[in-house]
């Protein structure tokens, strides 16, 4: 038992204070999958949203890659075509060379990668080649996405019947802090109601903000109260403001993918980095993503303070 405790303590503490080792995480047996968004709606001016992305292994670059291009336009001032060298940034996740088609059992509609520079390229948008394509109520569409490296997904989706807010049951002018009912006609199980300040009313929108949101299940009305968040000056300046009341009737896939808390099997244990889940997939065969349809109706009302 002849030892020098002090020396031993110092040695042990030094040994105990070693640093933490880091290691690159490798994706074992990684096989990329397609991750596709395809949303159709005859409402809101006709919605045909298609985005194609892919999964990436844990190793390798993340973020975006640069894609230099030349942009030219005619200048009346110089009376000539002027070109600029520009760079756009494309996400490593984006798939830009996929073969995307929608068919309704009869016609087939091809999609092309949307390389407009005024659109953020992060997510890989695809637009119909036929600009007149418009989703039709009751029609079942088949989606097919294929990539040159052999990845493919498919899915089917039927456009649901329209939804309509019963405007005759809703007052023309609403009063803050009083309760009102918004009712609609539709048979969807899931309805999303959104009440928000009308974005295009300039100062009033900013002065009195409203944002109310609810998910209504198996019902055709919702009772609400408007409690605006107003600037102090708005007390005297804004006696009325306008709100937009939207009702969005969605199919189950839409609900499960975007709304349902159970849809994603979330984890928050990846401290310092972010979130994760087991991969959300609704209506997409062979990959991730969502193929869904919705219907919506929107009305505007004045709100008296």
């Amino acid at each position: 038992m002849n030892f020098r405790p002090t020396m031993l303590l110092v040695l042990l503490v030094m040994l105990g204070c070693r640093g933490w080792d880091s290691e690159l995480v490798r994706s074992k047996d990684f096989e990329s999958q397609l991750n596709v968004l395809a949303i159709l709606s005859p409402d809101d001016g006709g919605v045909v949203e298609v985005q194609v992305m892919r999964t990436l292994p844990l190793e390798g670059p993340t973020g975006e890659r640069s894609d230099p291009f030349t942009e030219c336009h005619y200048s009346e001032y110089y009376d000539s075509t002027i070109c600029h060298e520009r760079t756009r940034w494309i996400s490593y996740y984006s798939v830009t060379d996929a073969l995307v088609t929608l068919s309704d059992g009869g016609a087939t509609y091809d999609f092309r990668y949307d390389d407009r520079v005024d659109r953020y390229q992060y997510t890989g948008y695809y637009v119909p080649v036929d600009t007149n394509f418009f989703p039709v109520t009751g029609v079942t569409y088949q989606l097919s996405v294929e990539t040159p490296d052999g990845l493919e997904v498919s899915g089917t989706c039927t456009i649901p019947p329209p939804v309509a807010i019963k405007t005759d049951l809703l007052s023309d002018t609403l009063q803050v802090r009083k309760t009102f009912d918004v009712a609609w006609t539709h048979t969807a199980n899931y309805v999303q109601v959104l009440i928000r300040s009308v974005p295009d009313t300039g100062y009033a929108w900013h002065a009195c903000e409203v944002w109310k949101h609810a998910i209504v299940q198996d019902d055709s009305s919702w009772t609400f109260r408007i409690v605006p968040d107003c600037w102090e000056e708005a007390d005297t300046l804004i006696p009325y403001f306008e709100v937009e009341i939207s009702v969005l009737a969605m199919d189950k896939r839409y609900y499960d993918y975007f709304i349902s808390p159970e849809g994603g099997a979330n984890e928050t244990t990846f401290i310092f980095l972010g979130m994760g889940d087991t991969g959300r997939s609704q209506g997409i065969e062979g990959g991730l993503g969502v193929f869904a349809a919705y219907r919506s109706d929107t009305v505007r009302r004045l709100v008296k303070r």
């Binding site: 999958q33 991750n35 992305m53 990436l56 844990l58 994760g276 991969g279 991730l288």
Partner: peptide, 10 residues
């Protein structure tokens, strides 16, 4: 729970 890959949900 291991992480296997990266993706971007919509």
């Amino acid at each position: 729970t291991p992480i296997l890959a990266r993706y971007i949900p919509f």
